[in-house]
C-alpha cells in the first residue's frame, strides 16, 4: 500500500521522513561496501521486480495477484542491498508512476523497504538454514507484506484518516490474503530458482544476526500491536487522535520538536507561518545533509 501525499498529517510524514534518512544511509553504506560495483545488479533487479509484477498468479474465481518482491530480494541479495533496491523502486514509483507520495516517501520507505523488509528477513534469519527453510521463507514473505501494510494503516489512523470498523477489519483480512499469496509466490519462485541450480539464494548472514533479529522482532510487534489496537478500538483511536490533536483540525500537544513546531505554526500570524514553513524546510534539509555528510565520511574511511 503506497500512501499518497495528502493523507498523513504533518507531524507523521515529517517525523518519518527524518527517521528514514539514517536508515537508508545505513543500508546504502552497507550495500555499497567499498565501491559502486553493485550498482548495475541492484538497479537491474529493481527493474526485475517491476517487470515481475506483470506476471499474474491465479488466486481463484477469476482474480489474480502478483509478486511484491521484498522478501525475494532480501533472500537473494541480502537485506541491505534489498532495502536499497526497494527504496529505489519506491522513488521511481513516486516520481514516475504517481504511485505513492513524495512527502510520504519517508513513510512508504520505512514501511516497506526498512521495517517490512526486516520483519520479512527475521524468520529466514532464524530458520533459513535448516529443516524449516520453506516455512521460514513463506512466513517471512507473508510478514513482509503484512507488517508494511499494517504500519501504513496505523500511520493513516494516527493521522486521523477515519475508517469504519468493518472496513478496517476487511482491510486487515485483505492484507492477510495478500500476505499468504506473497508467501506462496515467494516459495514457488525460490523453488524455481533452486531448480536452476545456480546458487542465487543466500545463506542467512550470521555476522549481523542479533541486531537484525531485534529490529525485525520489534517491527513485527509494532505492526501487530498497532493493528490489534486499531482494529479493536477504531473509535478509540479516532477519539484519541482528536483529543491529542494529531488530526488535522486539532492542536498539537505531543512533545516532539516537530509537533511543537506545528503547534506554533497554527497560532502564529501568516508571515510568521510562512517563515516557519521555510525554516522547517531548511531544518529538514540541514539535518538530512548533515546525516548524509556524517555517513559519507564514515563510508569514505
Amino acid at each position: 500500500m503506497h500512501i499518497p501525499d495528502g493523507f498523513l498529517s504533518t507531524p507523521v510524514w515529517a517525523t518519518l521522513d527524518l527517521a528514514v534518512v539514517p536508515a537508508v544511509g545505513y543500508f546504502a553504506r552497507r550495500a555499497q561496501g567499498l565501491e559502486q560495483s553493485k550498482v548495475p545488479l541492484l538497479g537491474v533487479m529493481g527493474a526485475f521486480v517491476f517487470a515481475a509484477q506483470m506476471i499474474n498468479f491465479p488466486v481463484g474465481v477469476g482474480t489474480s495477484g502478483h509478486l511484491i518482491g521484498a522478501a525475494l530480494l532480501a533472500y537473494t541479495l541480502g537485506p541491505a542491498a534489498a532495502s536499497v533496491v526497494l527504496t529505489a523502486i519506491l522513488v521511481v514509483q513516486a516520481l514516475v508512476f504517481q504511485d505513492g507520495g513524495t512527502l510520504a516517501l519517508g513513510a512508504n520507505v520505512l514501511n516497506m523497504a526498512v521495517i517490512g523488509l526486516l520483519a520479512g528477513y527475521l524468520p529466514y534469519q532464524i530458520w533459513g538454514g535448516g529443516r524449516w527453510r520453506r516455512p521460514a521463507i513463506f512466513l517471512g514473505a507473508m510478514l513482509s507484506v503484512m507488517v508494511s501494510a499494517l504500519l501504513a494503516l496505523s500511520e493513516l489512523l494516527v493521522s486521523g484518516v477515519a475508517m469504519p470498523a468493518t472496513a478496517l477489519r476487511v482491510s486487515i483480512g485483505l492484507f492477510m490474503i495478500y500476505g499468504l499469496l506473497e508467501g506462496a509466490i515467494t516459495v514457488a519462485v525460490l523453488g524455481a530458482l533452486e531448480s536452476m541450480n545456480v546458487g542465487f539464494l543466500r545463506v542467512p548472514e550470521a555476522s549481523v544476526s542479533h541486531r537484525f533479529k531485534w529490529v525485525g522482532l520489534a517491527a513485527i510487534l509494532l505492526a501487530t500491536f498497532g493493528a490489534l489496537i486499531a482494529s479493536a478500538y477504531p473509535d478509540g483511536i479516532q477519539r484519541l487522535t482528536s483529543e491529542i490533536g494529531i488530526g488535522s483540525h486539532g492542536r498539537l500537544r505531543i512533545s516532539t520538536p516537530l509537533a511543537n513546531y506545528e503547534a506554533a505554526f497554527f497560532q502564529s500570524g501568516w508571515l510568521r507561518k510562512a517563515a516557519a514553513g521555510v525554516a522547517g524546510v531548511v531544518v529538514i534539509y540541514g539535518v538530512c545533509a548533515l546525516g548524509g555528510r556524517i555517513l559519507g565520511r564514515q563510508r569514505g574511511k
Partner: peptide, 29 residues
C-alpha cells in the same frame, strides 16, 4: 543533497533497464 549517491545510481540503472526487462517479461507472458 543528502541523498546517498549510491541510491541515486541504483535508481538511474533501474530506470535505464526498466523498459528492457519489462519487454522481456511481456515476451515471456
Amino acid at each position: 543533497t543528502a541523498v546517498p549517491r549510491f541510491l541515486l545510481l541504483v535508481v538511474q540503472f533501474l530506470y535505464r533497464y526498466l523498459f528492457v526487462i519489462s519487454e522481456e517479461a511481456q515476451h515471456m507472458r
